[in-house]
């Protein structure tokens, strides 16, 4: 038997989340936009940077802001020899826990340094601001080591003239993650067959029902399915709806019909498009057949079948839908 196709494909999952900050986080980010850093006083008097909304020990809502310095001391650090694509710095750098002057609790951010040897717990660092702070944690572009010999450039940078006075209440947070997806064995087998223009389901060894598209198990029995069953590309409409809104990434224009179709010989339905008919003529029990894309366009995808269209065969009675043999229904 031929080696099963292993189907892998990279994909990205992501969205640019629009996060409202609330007053505490907002105050901190507004400060960053103005090149100032604010912490908050905890129930026990300690100053926490960045500010927490709620005290970790008493659960009290916190609201006493305290401005802190823009230099601090490294309390711990690590060296990222090979930065990851998502990291804020793309040459080797350090992550560090930095306790800013005036704060009692360290914050985590990155430290730019030429070499690992420059880093040390207890070393002094200073904020390096982004060129155009906008109210985001990366307004602190990174921290840089302060040479003890040189005078610190004052506890705070001169405040950038605020571009507008309205406080930051929102951030746009892009969260995009990259994955490499590998299809399961049963779906891969199905897709390898459909690439050849063949529809193939799997039969449950216990209840003998045929599942297409197959997932490797009979959900009702909880047993693995192995036996392949080749099915024709004729089907019966089990149910349907007329859709007025477009499907993401699909060129089909509303209003269009999607239907739950049961292939001859299968015992479950799948959703697909119906076309080459009046929407109003679609009905339960209607016989349809697949219209395939040109063979040259076939890939590992259900949409090798462009849609199903009605064929001239008698309707299937409702009671027989999902129970037809592979040979179909001739009334």
């Amino acid at each position: 038997m031929a080696q099963p196709d292993v189907l892998s494909q990279p994909f990205e999952l992501g969205f640019t989340y629009t996060r409202s900050t609330g007053p505490v986080v907002g105050r901190f980010l507004t400060g960053l936009r103005d090149r100032r850093i604010f912490g908050i006083r905890a129930s026990d008097g300690r100053v926490i940077v960045p500010p927490m909304e709620y005290d970790p020990n008493t659960a009290a809502a916190l609201d006493e802001f305290v401005e802190v310095g823009q230099q601090g001391t490294i309390r711990s650090w690590c060296w990222v020899k090979r930065p990851r694509a998502a990291h804020p710095l793309q040459q080797p750098f350090a992550w560090a826990m930095i306790q800013l002057d005036g704060a009692d609790v360290p914050m985590i951010h990155c430290v730019a340094a030429a070499a690992e040897e420059e880093l040390a717990t207890g070393a002094r660092v200073q904020v390096k601001w982004a060129d155009e702070p906008r109210g985001f944690i990366t307004d602190i572009r990174c921290f840089e080591l302060v040479d003890r010999k040189t005078t610190a450039e004052g506890a705070t940078n001169p405040a950038a003239p605020a571009n507008d006075d309205s406080p930051v209440t929102r951030i746009d947070a892009p969260v995009y993650l990259h994955y490499n997806f590998t299809a399961g064995r049963a779906p891969a087998r199905f897709l390898a067959r459909i690439k050849e223009g063949v529809l193939s389901g799997q039969r449950c060894p216990r209840c003998a029902n045929v599942y297409i598209p197959p997932r490797g198990s009979c959900p009702a029995c909880g047993v693995a399915t192995e036996e392949e069953v080749v099915l024709p590309d004729k089907a019966t409409v089990q149910s349907f709806t007329i859709v007025a809104i477009p499907i993401p990434n699909n060129p089909i224009k509303p209003p269009f019909v999607i239907a739950n179709l049961v292939l001859d010989g299968a015992n479950i339905s799948f959703i697909h498009l119906l076309s080459e008919c009046e929407n109003s003529e679609v009905h339960i029990g209607q016989r349809v057949q697949a219209v395939w894309k040109p063979q040259a366009e076939w890939g590992y995808a259900m949409d090798n079948i462009r849609y199903f269209r009605p064929i001239d065969e008698p309707d299937v009675p409702v009671a027989m839908i999902g129970k037809l043999p592979v040979t179909g229904w001739e009334g």
Partner: peptide, 15 residues
């Protein structure tokens, strides 16, 4: 949010 090789038409909850 469909994964690659999805065999299911994504017609939304209403679909």
């Amino acid at each position: 949010t469909p994964q690659p090789f999805s065999v299911h038409l994504n017609a939304g909850a209403g679909g």
